[in-house]
């Protein structure tokens, strides 16, 4: 059974009071859950949030499934998100993703055997000036090349 930490609950409470419509608190609350629940939002977590906020399950689920930033399956310890929008793609982001998957021996969205990595393609990270951009959990890594990627992976324990 998932339950938010006291700080997490405090955050949800604050967000609920912050907007005139309590539905607006769904996104920040889901982010908090994702942070505390090893990188994904489980159905039990939705149950918990619904109980906490009084927002119906179906409507939390609407938000959860609309935004791709919320993961609906468990991810590895490090969630490597490669931007594959126009600019990054022009700088070989797609090839970079394929290469990365091959090296880790996984397909996009899968968790590597040691539980450390998940790779996924994402939409624009807003870092076109440093394409190709990669986001690992909440940290940005710019101007990525296959070589820089190798170093990055070896540094991530």
């Amino acid at each position: 059974m998932f339950e938010l930490s006291p700080e997490g609950k405090e955050l949800v409470k604050k967000e609920l009071a912050r907007y005139e419509d309590k539905y607006s608190a769904i996104i920040p609350s889901l982010y908090q859950i994702q942070k505390e629940n090893e990188g994904w939002v489980s159905p039990e977590a939705v149950d918990h949030l619904s109980e906490l906020t009084g927002i119906p399950h179906s409507h939390i689920n609407e938000v959860l499934k609309f935004y791709t930033m919320f993961n609906l399956k468990p991810t590895g310890k490090y969630h490597i998100q490669v931007c594959c929008n126009i600019t990054c793609s022009m700088f070989q982001a797609r090839e970079l993703t394929d290469d990365l998957c091959q090296k880790l021996g996984i397909k996009e969205g899968e968790v590597s055997e040691d539980g450390r990595f998940t790779v996924s393609r994402v939409e624009c990270l807003g870092s076109c000036d440093n394409a190709p951009a990669v986001q690992v959990n909440e940290t940005y890594h710019d101007n990525m090349t296959p070589e820089k990627m190798d170093t990055l992976i070896s540094e991530l324990k």
């Binding site: 119906p56 179906s58 409507h59 689920n61 609407e62 499934k65 609309f66």
Partner: peptide, 21 residues
């Protein structure tokens, strides 16, 4: 009773219920 919602986005949007509800 709020059982129904519209899930996913764009042309993949569909009506549905939350699991076990």
């Amino acid at each position: 009773t709020n059982e129904l919602g519209i899930f996913n986005r764009g042309d993949r949007s569909e009506i549905g219920t939350f699991e076990n509800r």
